[in-house]
């Protein structure tokens, strides 16, 4: 502390400025971020704890929870495998078109979820490219689980890759090259050399990917068809209850996703303490920083 006090005051360190800015930030933050968090739980329990548990236990809500969990159980592992494969391909090899590939992986990050949903309609819908053929073969993609999973995979495509790529880029190829030159197979090299070095970043990407899959609304609402008790994921079910004037029920369902969001943030902070995300803290918001790294 004494060392801290010995330093000359920096710009904005005068008590008046400091207190005003802190007060302003806390006030606006409380209104814009904290209040929504609180109002969700206040509304969820507005009719009492019994009404809350009854709302959660309602069959359609339970089905929506189940569908959301199933979607995540399919989409997140596939996405993770893709993210790892993409990171390996992009950081361990040089090939033409590499930067373009990175940009394409990042595209879903900048596209409106509604556009994503509409785009899927024009592939698998009846008026889409493959729709008629799929109908002839009696394969149902849209307004069913596969469509929901596909749309979720689109919106989260960059999540794991963008955590791994900058980290694996920075770590270079020396360790892996040493391992293979000592006779380790590619798999062995990945499991015992690469993975231990990137595990926290990988988990970080998986956690964020999972949160987005479980919470996705726009893209899924286009492709799911909103069939109550059948293709309604939890966010869609919240909308249905809310527009049905079952406010307490809607907020009860919303409180589950809010708990998920809070757990996600806690996990995020814990993983950042282990070094995940920190390096790529800029790249979370600024994905293309990845592409700016020299490609040896």
């Amino acid at each position: 502390m004494s060392l801290h006090q010995a330093k000359p005051p920096r710009v904005g360190d005068s008590p008046a400025v400091r207190r005003t800015l802190i007060a302003l930030v806390l006030l606006v933050g409380a209104v814009l971020v904290l209040a929504p968090l609180i109002v969700i739980f206040v509304q969820a329990f507005s009719l009492g704890i019994q009404a809350f548990t009854a709302a959660i236990g309602e069959p359609d809500t339970l089905h929506a929870i189940l569908l959301t969990v199933i979607t995540a159980l399919i989409a997140v592992p596939i996405n993770t495998a893709f993210g790892v494969a993409a990171a390996w391909a992009v950081t361990k090899f040089d090939f033409p078109g590499k930067r373009l590939l990175i940009v394409v992986i990042e595209i879903p990050f900048s596209i409106s979820p509604i556009v994503a949903g509409v785009a899927y309609l024009f592939v698998y819908g009846l008026q889409g490219l493959l729709g008629p053929a799929l109908q002839a073969a009696d394969i149902k993609i849209l307004f069913a689980l596969p469509g929901i999973v596909l749309a979720s995979m689109f919106v989260t495509a960059p999540f794991v890759a963008r955590e791994l790529i900058p980290l694996m880029q920075a770590q270079g190829r020396d360790l892996e090259e040493a391992a293979t030159s000592l006779g380790a197979s590619g798999w062995r090299t990945f499991w015992s050399v690469t993975l231990p070095n990137v595990r926290w970043a990988l988990l970080y990407g998986v956690v964020l990917c999972n949160a987005r899959v479980m919470g996705e609304f726009g893209a899924v609402s286009v492709v799911s068809g909103n069939i109550r008790g059948q293709t309604n994921t939890l966010p869609l079910h919240i909308e249905l209850l809310y527009h049905d004037y079952q406010t307490a029920g809607a907020f009860a369902a919303a409180s589950i996703l809010t708990v998920l969001a809070v757990v996600t943030i806690i996990a995020k902070v814990a993983l950042e303490r282990r070094g995940a995300g920190r390096r790529s803290r800029v790249s979370i918001a600024a994905p293309s920083m990845i592409a700016e790294e020299p490609t040896s």
Partner: peptide, 17 residues
């Protein structure tokens, strides 16, 4: 930590809140 809440909270939940 809470700065990231808008990214973690599903948009529909944010909307009704």
């Amino acid at each position: 930590a809470i700065v990231d809440l808008p990214f973690a909270l599903p948009t529909a939940v944010a909307g009704i809140a």
